[in-house]
Write a protein that binds this DNA or RNA. Structure first.
Lengths: 156, 156
DNA sequence: TATTGTTATACTCTATAACTATA
DNA sequence: TATAGTTATAGAGTATAACAATA
């Protein structure tokens, strides 16, 4: 993505031939939302990824690194760095699973819960602003559609 | 994205805390659609990106590399490699702009038009399959919503 | 001076392979 | 043998900086 914001748009946006292409639309909606969310999280200790990790860890406990990785659909090697980052900020802590010492159980600290709450508020506000062009009912339908596709068996 | 397909999903998918988070939904819908599209394009000479470049070049002529880059919202340095790839396959050709010799005008060759047509058919079929869980009206509404967001002024 | 194409370079994100320790 | 965490490494994708040619 090229500066997504600072970059000027051509006269015709989106280009006529791609205005109905799902891949193009998804890519740029995602880029637009990420660009809109980033500044909203500058005051918080976590970015969108960190928020997602905290949310999964806080939602279902206790969770090992690998279990959290499965729920987020990221590789367990990716999870290592994510947890490292959160742990360095004191937002989570690792401890060995007493029942299976191969595993690290990851707990969300008090500071982690606080950061998650603040990030969540900023994110939800960013979502409302971003989805405003759809209207309230339209935004709800849009999210429902996304959820349907994400939940769909194989293809989604 | 971790093998998106081969990877097993956890019991709860998407995780409860993220089922309403736009970034998470967009990321995984996009990943799912890309995974669904890729095999559909194995027989064609272009991938999704190449198809998008061809479509923009064929839709509004003549276009320089930089103009095409603006329409696709990619950097002009990125466009160089994209055109290189298409040119190596004989799908586009570069020629200097007679009115401004700093510019390369990029033409879609006959082979390029043929590849674009075949890719377009495969992609549209993949879209229909992927969006099937929404129903016909739902799929149309979903695409309309994406287009609205992509077209929105600054935030999208 | 500014713009276009190009190259070299670097950065982000994430996966694969291989190692250690546990099971 | 298989799994969890870790590390090192590599690949994809894309950006920034700098240069040559042209305007």
């Amino acid at each position: 993505m090229p500066a997504a914001d600072g970059e000027q748009r051509p006269d015709e946006w989106p280009p006529a031939g791609l205005a109905a292409r799902l891949a193009f639309l998804l890519k740029h909606v995602q880029a637009g939302f990420n660009a809109a969310t980033e500044p909203a999280l500058t005051d918080v200790e976590v970015d969108g990824r960190g928020y997602a990790v905290l949310t999964v860890l806080a939602g279902e406990r206790p969770l090992s690194q690998h279990q959290a990785a499965l729920r987020l659909a990221v590789d367990r090697t990716t999870m290592v760095a994510l947890i490292d980052g959160l742990e360095a900020k004191g937002l989570v802590s690792r401890r060995p699973d007493p029942h299976d010492r191969r595993r690290n159980i990851v707990d969300v600290t008090t500071a982690g819960h606080a950061a998650m709450k603040r990030a969540g508020e900023a994110i939800e506000q960013a979502e409302r602003r971003f989805l405003a062009p759809l209207g309230e009912a339209g935004a709800r339908q849009f999210k429902d559609a996304l959820l349907t596709l994400v939940s769909a068996p194989t293809p989604g």
